[in-house]
Computed example of a mutant assay.
Amino acid sequence: MSAPLPDTVPVIQTFGLSKVYSPGSEAEVVALKGVDMRVGRGDFVAIMGPSGSGKSTLMNLIGCLDTPSTGSYLCDGIDVSTLDAEELAILRREKIGFVFQGFNLLPRMSALENVAMPLGYAQVPVPERAARAQEALAAVGLAERAGHKPSELSGGQQQRVAIARALINKPPILLADEPTGALDSKTGEEILSLFKRLRDDDHTVILITHDPEVAAHADRILVMRDGELHEEPGSGRRDSGFGGATP
């Protein structure tokens, strides 16, 4: 995979991105309609909308977990449509860190082992894995909990472990799907503050949420309505722009 591109190149850029399920049949569903989107390095962007609005479909396309029916997507300057399955897997590993509502930690593994797990897929030498995992846990304030299993951690601590795992390969993009949905409001605020610190460290944070109060923590708010993407008036940070961009 190529080296990170200059800050002037968008980390996420889509052109006319559309997704149609079961096209031409009675069950046809148009989930996404011509989405143009441009997100710069170090942006904190919330994508919000109700169930069925298309935000999950957009998240899957941004995360390279699905392919569009039409349109194109450049991830850190790379046109994902030009990649084969193996290259896509490498791109996901190197460019995108995933954080989910349910934490998705392996219960029999310690926090350190959970965080280090992606390094095995990246063929990082075993001695280096523990050191990097410990560093990632320290970055989210959990250095002292490295030996604890998920059942020995609070919900907020488990989500911090999940964030550390997402960051272990130093991806430019952190894609968080309802990351505070299983947390109480105080713990949720702590996780959102952590995302802001990660943004300040030049990570690009994409937050998927249905909650306006959660979305308000982001620098930009994009709203999905019936498969179309709209930017909230007054939101915006740096020169990220929205739609109509050229690569």
Rank of each mutant, 00 (worst) to 15 (best):
L17W: 09
S18N: 04
Y21I: 05
S22P: 00
S22L: 08
P23T: 10
P23M: 06
S25V: 01
E26F: 02
E26M: 06
A27Q: 15
E28M: 01
E28T: 05
E28H: 04
E28V: 00
V29I: 15
V29R: 08
V30H: 15
V30Y: 04
A31S: 12
A31C: 06
A31N: 02
A31T: 00
L32K: 04
K33F: 01
K33T: 11
G34Y: 00
V35L: 04
V35Q: 05
V35F: 03
D36K: 00
D36E: 10
D36Q: 01
D36L: 05
M37H: 07
R38D: 12
R38V: 06
V39W: 11
V39Y: 12
G40I: 00
G40H: 08
G40P: 04
G40N: 06
G40K: 05
G40E: 11
R41M: 10
R41N: 13
R41S: 14
F44V: 01
V45N: 08
A46Q: 01
A46G: 02
I47F: 14
I47R: 08
M48S: 07
M48N: 03
M48E: 09
G49Q: 07
G49N: 05
P50E: 13
S51A: 02
S53C: 11
G54Q: 08
K55I: 03
K55P: 09
K55D: 09
K55F: 09
S56E: 09
T57F: 10
T57R: 09
L58Q: 09
L58M: 06
M59Q: 13
M59P: 07
G63V: 02
L65P: 12
L65G: 12
L65C: 10
T67K: 08
P68N: 00
S69T: 15
T70S: 15
S72A: 13
S72T: 14
Y73I: 12
L74S: 13
C75R: 03
C75D: 07
C75K: 02
C75Y: 06
D76H: 05
D76W: 01
G77A: 10
G77S: 11
D79C: 05
D79L: 10
V80A: 12
V80N: 08
S81F: 06
T82Q: 15
L83N: 08
D84W: 07
D84H: 05
D84N: 15
A85H: 13
A85V: 12
E86T: 13
E86P: 00
E87Q: 15
